[in-house]
Design a protein around this nucleic acid. Structure first.
Length: 362
DNA sequence: GTCCGGGTCT
DNA sequence: AGACCCGGAC
């Protein structure tokens, strides 16, 4: 789930705060989030929305229906213009590295006895190699310079937009998320007060193209209420308080801290960062040499040695890399410029894996 | 047509 | 571990 493109559209001006805090306590925070933020409980489902989508229907029928509904959406009380999602469609051919010529200058690897030593000596070369690969092709995240939409907004509104778009963005292509943000914007709903006054079902309908839209509509309403009641309409400026928002987990919280507040508290570990870090042998479960099993383990492990300057850029870098070359299934190791630095290179079979077993045998 | 990925909550 | 959703891979 590439966020960088989306977020690059909402980038803030260089005015930012520089205070740094301890980056460690996300877990504790999550554990105690209920106490930390009593409002969260109160806000709990105050409206239950029932949707016509509950009817059983075939996936394809449903797909068509949703599409149609999107197109017809103009009939709603809130005047809206469906953003041209088609115009934002992710062009996969563009995203793929076009030629083997993408291979960057390779760095010699000398076998070292100790894995950690190898990592320490090579991480810079690895990052450099990945950057080079990213230059030759255009991953979705590479399309920058779309600061227009975001830069028109005052800082506070921009931060709110970042929060809302982040909350909508998980499991959703950033083009779609962006369209949804635009739709909210066009309806004057990039504003906590307006959102709170908007019917949840209507909100859900507006953001329908994004995944899990009902749940997100609920969470966005809750978050807006909390922003209003506790933060003067601004978004929380600490990791803890962001994590206290329902629908905001570690990944999104770190992202929002980086993008909205320019105050990176930790690494934003999504599925790409998680997968690639493990393939590179960059991260281990506490006290073992085993791969990490959760993004949070990856984050902790990565933060232990990766210089803080790299914390923010590592996400868009690996996301783009993961979209184009180091894909979850059948990574394109032959096109990868750092395959000589990667302990996992060519080790994952290009045809279906042990995973196949996983079909159904309870 | 079926299945799977992906972040978060429960 | 399953639910939430959709698009894309198979």
């Amino acid at each position: 789930m590439p966020l960088a493109l989306l977020l690059s559209r909402i980038r803030l001006p260089p005015a930012a705060m520089a205070s740094t805090r301890s980056a460690s306590s996300a877990r504790l925070v999550r554990a105690s989030r209920a106490e930390a933020n009593p409002v969260v409980r109160e806000v709990k489902r105050e409206s239950s929305v029932s949707f016509d989508i509950s009817k059983p229907e075939s996936p394809s029928v449903k797909r068509k229906r949703v599409k149609r509904e999107l197109e017809e959406n103009g009939e709603h009380p809130v005047k809206q213009v469906v953003p041209d999602i088609e115009d934002f469609r992710y062009d996969k051919t563009k995203a793929l590295i076009s030629s083997s010529k993408a291979t960057p200058p390779l760095v010699k690897v000398e076998k070292k006895a100790r894995v950690s030593a190898v990592i320490k000596e090579n991480w810079e070369a690895v990052l450099r190699g990945i950057k080079n690969m990213r230059l030759s092709g255009q991953a979705p995240v590479d399309t920058k310079g779309c600061e227009k939409a975001g830069s028109l907004l005052p800082p506070k509104e921009r931060r709110f937009a970042v929060l809302i778009s982040t909350m909508m963005s998980s499991q959703t292509k950033d083009e779609v998320t962006h369209a949804a943000v635009e739709r909210l914007s066009e309806n004057g709903l990039l504003d906590p007060d307006a959102i709170v006054r908007t019917d949840e079902a209507m909100l859900a309908n507006l953001i329908k193209p994004v995944g899990f839209y009902q749940r997100k509509a609920q969470f966005i309403k809750e978050a807006s209420k909390i922003c209003l009641e506790r933060f003067g309409g601004d978004i929380p400026d600490s990791l803890n308080e962001l994590l206290a928002l329902r629908g905001v987990g570690p990944k999104m919280a770190h992202l929002v801290m980086s993008i909205a507040w320019k105050n990176t508290q930790g690494i934003c570990v999504d599925t790409h960062v998680h997968r690639i870090s493990n393939r590179l042998g960059w991260v281990f479960r506490e006290g073992t040499k085993q791969k990490t099993t959760t993004p949070e383990q990856t984050r902790i492990s990565l933060e232990k040695w990766l210089p803080k300057d790299e914390w923010e850029p590592i996400n868009p870098l690996l996301v783009g890399f993961g979209q184009t070359i180091c894909t979850p299934l059948r990574p394109k190791c032959d096109m990868c410029g750092i395959n000589n630095l990667c302990p996992s290179a060519f080790k994952e079979s290009s045809s279906p894996n042990p995973k196949q077993k996983k079909t159904r045998s309870p």
